[in-house]
Amino acid sequence: MPKAHVYKRDHINTDEIIPARYLNTDDAVVLAKHCMEDIDEGFMKKISAGDIIVAGDDFGCGSSREHAVWSIQGAKIGAVIAQSYARIFYRNCINCGFYVIELPNAPQVINDGDEIEIDYKAGEINNKTQKKKISFEPLPDFALEIINDGGLLEHIKKKVK
């Protein structure tokens, strides 16, 4: 069962998600080794595939580096649930086919270690630990279309071919 890793902080930036010293590669497997390194050194040791990052406002602010999304995807994180996102990061996630959830008070309503199941279609987070269901606003249709196509490039491929 996917576990929540809660960071009770706003403005977790792309330098913390993937420090610039590792930007000399775009290999998601290498990037994943350093995912969240500057905010939580032990991050990669404690997570398992499918786990969820939970944070406050403005998650992913800073650089346009999609490497931040790739490192999270490379680390096999299942989803990010944050109060709000920085614009470029949010857009990059959609373009990479990675689902991000906006949830008011995310770091307050989800506790570190909670077991979480997400129903994307219904827009519902099932917190198994707290035995609580919380609904969220699903992504807009055009974004879902891009995610369902497998990312923006698959989406535009039809156009250029």
């Binding site: 775009d26 800073g62 650089s63 346009s64 580096r65 999609e66 999304v69 470029i88 857009r91 990059n92 373009n95 990479c96 990312g151 923006l152 490039l153 535009i156 156009k159 250029v160």
Partner: peptide, 30 residues
């Protein structure tokens, strides 16, 4: 531009914004 500070060029009465690599790729192609 594939860089968050692409907003710089707005000083010239232009619209300009930073994007990630996928957007950049889509822009380059289309």
């Amino acid at each position: 531009g594939g860089d968050s500070h692409t907003c710089t060029y707005g000083a010239f009465a232009a619209f300009s914004t930073g994007v990630g690599s996928t957007d950049l790729a889509a822009g380059i192609a289309t």
